[in-house]
Design a binder for these strands. Structure first.
Lengths: 270, 270
DNA sequence: CAGAGATTTGCAAAAAACGGCACTTACGCC
DNA sequence: GGCGTAAGTGCCGTTTTTTGCAAATCTCTG
């Protein structure tokens, strides 16, 4: 096949009309917005065609049309209250953290991902990857995954916490003896020198610990507001993880604790 | 012609019609999409034949047909045709069916519910119930449940079909020996005298059969467009279910078959 | 309010789909 | 063996869809 150059959305070039429209939607969803020119270049069609496609999609409510391009249709459709709100907070920071995380996952790896809005952002940022296998307890995550990135998606079954859109249960599937993954991506509620990694819910904490135990290596994602905070439930000690990805350098005491535990700290830049 | 080189799908050339259609599906699944011309070359048949095959497959839901070729069902589903449109189409009928179904579930019962837009409507209609326990493979369903109605929600784990927002796997949880429920609410793709209950996906069909087997009684929900239709995969025979809830009286032949199988037919009124 | 950029509209060419037709092959039946 | 039926296939002319181009119009911004 011809060498493809860094189109923002690979496979964009040469897609069938019907598929292109679907990919257009994905593109807009992933980036929050997109200009007509941008899309025309990415998909190698004329701006007119993009305009027609966007109009078509807008008629169906898939995107919102604006002068010069299109934006994500606002979250009117699904009546998530708390969840949507939390998503909005630190949105940009989360996106930066997510991109940095996606860069540190290799193509073809199996990834365990837990619930939360930061990890959801990681899922959206996986467009740069190929052939990854995803295992998650986050019910909203499968829909957020770029289809081009994933080979298989597995959802862990169990009791459902409706408010946070996650399941609680063993990190396993019926009839198998547990699972093992290359990497666990864990969003936490607090990172502190004494408490280690914490979250608000005891059962979720236990599940996260199990995920970390099932993976070769662990990346913790946490925006800077989590530093020094201890939530209710202890997950694991800091030395159980290999890497922490965040948006700002933590305070000195947290930094010291992290380096003492051998955790590599990555600060996602703009 | 020259010896075959690098046909993307070996054995493509010279396959029997039935086999070719199966291979076509695989080809599309693997590549995400395929053009008619591409497939015609790979399988050494005329473009017309490919078109006919793709139409045939599309009618059965194995692939999504688009201008110029075909795309995986998942490739479009997010925004394009099936899911969004389907939930809009027959929206009112689905709501009527859903209310009638909710009335026939008792407070405190354990309910197995499979994927699909009609069953999602049933979830929304459960506001009249109290204390029900829900077990589902539908990832969107927990968010649609009125919190006042449910005691516990369980999501069945397994492989995830992103397009339809469902999981595929055993109707069980790790460490338990299967489950049993009071009632199964099953949305199907087709109801026909000969084929019984059918759907487009083989694995989903198996899962639905298992759900029906795990429940004391079964309600099938199907809007009238499903009557007389046979989708690809057979689920169970008509006599395996106790009740069918729909929006219009089926044609005579379907009615006869249903009453012969001992299925009570409920037509949801305005 | 003026200009750059975006959009709309009409149009024409290319590609794909549709519908009809004929031919081959397989199969069952007498 | 002869025959009728049905499915599968390829070909061809017509129709439809898609797409890029260009001119006219509109929208945003400084």
């Amino acid at each position: 096949m011809a060498p493809r150059q860094r189109t923002p959305e690979p496979d964009a070039d040469g897609a069938l009309p019907g598929r292109r429209r679907a990919l257009l939607t994905t593109f807009v969803e992933e980036h929050g917005q997109a200009t007509v020119v941008e899309l025309a270049e990415a998909f190698r069609v004329s701006a007119d065609t993009v305009r027609r496609d966007l109009d078509w999609l807008a008629r169906r409510g898939a995107v919102s049309r604006t002068y010069g391009g299109a934006v994500t249709v606002s979250g009117l459709a699904s009546s998530d209250t708390s969840f949507t709100d939390r998503s909005a907070v630190h949105r940009d920071e989360k996106r930066r953290i997510a991109s940095a995380t996606a860069e540190r996952i290799a193509d073809g790896e199996t990834v365990l991902i837990n619930g939360g809005t930061t990890t959801l952002a990681v899922a959206r940022a996986l467009g740069v990857r190929r052939n990854v296998t995803i295992v998650t307890n986050n019910l909203r995550l499968p829909a957020a995954l770029p289809t081009s990135a994933v080979r298989d998606v597995y959802v862990l079954g169990g009791s459902c916490r409706v408010a946070s859109h996650v399941t609680i249960g063993p990190v396993a599937f019926p009839g198998t003896e547990g699972i093992s993954a290359d990497i666990a991506v864990i969003g936490v509620g607090g990172v502190s020198p004494r408490g280690g990694l914490t979250t608000t819910n005891l059962e979720e904490a236990q599940m996260m610990a199990e995920m970390i135990g099932s993976a070769q290596r662990t990346i913790v994602v946490a925006d800077s507001s989590k530093f020094g905070r201890s939530a209710f439930a202890h997950i694991v000690r800091l030395d159980a993880v290999e890497m922490l990805i965040t948006d700002r350098t933590p305070d000195a005491d947290v930094c010291d604790a992290l380096s003492a535990a051998g955790v590599e700290v990555v600060v996602a830049s703009q």
